[in-house]
Amino acid sequence: MISINAAVIDLKRLELLADGDTPIHALDARAKVLVTFVFIISVVSCSRYELARLIPFFIFPAVIIALANLPTLFLAGKITLVCSFVVIVGFFNPFFDHTELYQIGHITVTGGWISLISLFIRSLLTVGATFILIGTTGFTAVCQALERLGIPQLFTTQLLFLHRYIFVLADETGRASRARELRSCGKKGLGVVSFSSLVGHLLLRTWQQAARIHTAMLARGFAGHFHARRQPSFGMVELCYLLSWSSLFIALRLFDISETIGKVVTGIFP
């Protein structure tokens, strides 16, 4: 169960990154949420055969990671882990899509392979952008920003509780599985029977602990609102941040910058 505990620690570390003190951290969460939203829409709206068009989008995570002093290797590891699941989803694309797109020497590149790579790059970009948003803003502040942007409070509070519940569930799962492993003496224990009972117990135990944590929150004046330490203020800096990044993303989506640069370079050096 080391992996579960390690995953929880990683999740908590991501949350802690939001306590940084860089200009990116200081921006109003709404600006960061909106920029991430425009970024994700621009990336996912690219057609599945457009590889070159996606590459320039890497400028956004690269710049923000540098400006916000985020640990690149840590983030890259987590992003790759999530994206590997996406690759599993697109694993069969090369088998079903035989549209011939490119010919490199004797090798024919089919649409299936291109769409698989495109899926991977798009997931890298979107998952990366989401991790960067959490790492520079914090989950609580993101939910508050969503609320101020008009998402119903019921929804944002549910999101926050879900986020808290992940930690409670993971902690309890780690403990219960360790206890089971230790008494299984390296074997499978009682197999599915003990496993189903363990899952049932986990649900009840995490339910109880979540209720106790909720009680502790109520005891400290929680009334359905999470308050952020940073006071939100959407000023000129945020507006410039939002407009400049959004215009860049829309431009990258509408015009194939990679192709233009390619033509310029091949024009100069024919």
Partner: peptide
């Protein structure tokens, strides 16, 4: 239940 000790201690005063 908050990410840091400061956040946890600040939770009550912020709710006030």
């Amino acid at each position: 239940f908050m990410p840091t000790v400061f956040d946890d201690v600040a939770f009550g005063p912020l709710n006030l």
